[in-house]
Amino acid sequence: MSEQLLKLEPPFRSTEPYDPETRERLDRDAKDILARYPQPRSALLPMLHLVQAEDGYVTGRGIDFCAETLGITPAQVTGVATFYTQYKREPVGDYHVGVCINTLCAVMGGDQIWNELSEHLGVGHDESTEDGTVSLERIECNAACDFAPVMTVNWEFFDNMTPEKAKRLVDDLRAGKQVLPSRGPNTLCTWKQASRVLAGFDDGLAHEGVQAGTESLRGLDLARERGWTAPAADTGRAAPDEPVKPEEITDPPPNEPGKPIGGDVKPGSQEGRNQ
């Protein structure tokens, strides 16, 4: 019982303040976040993501920083931080691995993946390996049911998983080998880097990776094959007043339209990206 009570307290209620340089940087970022909203309190969720980008989890000093910046009490910040599952009260691994155990994924094999993976790593829900590289979480539906069973690493999608693929994935992560998501960029960022994107800061990777997985395209592929389209417009699609000129387009396509993405990776497929 006393052990359980102890666990309720964050192990590192690190209230030691940030060094002045770090604090200055955080203040600048916080200013950016605050500028997005008509009212300052709305900045709290992104600021908590920012704290995780700095400390890896919601630390005591992170809570103090949010409270000071927004003019609210640390208790108010803590009340919010403990409501949302993505805010962690203890450090997680550099690679936070989620296994979907909601009904459909569980039935399709998520339960078996979870059991085998948890045994393979020797860690349970919300626990990290001793080397601090990998932590595990039983996640709820992640809106990718057509790719079941689904896993995530630092909130990137790993689709159509099996127990073998899952174990290889965490082994590779622990060995420092490159691991790529099924629908995501050409690098896998760390937990802290991912948290910074969640706080609303650009990491320049939006243009990487497939536009859609194979499953997402099933209906469209069939429609193309059978010549099915939506009805033609009753008035015709309005022409733009001033058509966009090619030189005005600042955003070149990452690949030539209609041509497959380069390399030996089949768009949307797990194969070849998770070896």
Binding site: A206, H207, V210, Q211, A212, S216, L217, G219, L220, D221, L222, A223, R224, R226, W228, T229, A230, P231, R237, A238, A239, P240, V244, I249, T250, D251, P252, P253, P254, N255, E256, P257, G258, K259, P260, I261, P267
Partner: peptide
Amino acid sequence: TLTPVLTRNWDQPDSFTLAGYEREGGYT
């Protein structure tokens, strides 16, 4: 039969870019 409207450009590798969207009539 199927009626792709929102999904109509999903098979274009650059469907998520501004250029890719405008090529298909986006922002008209």
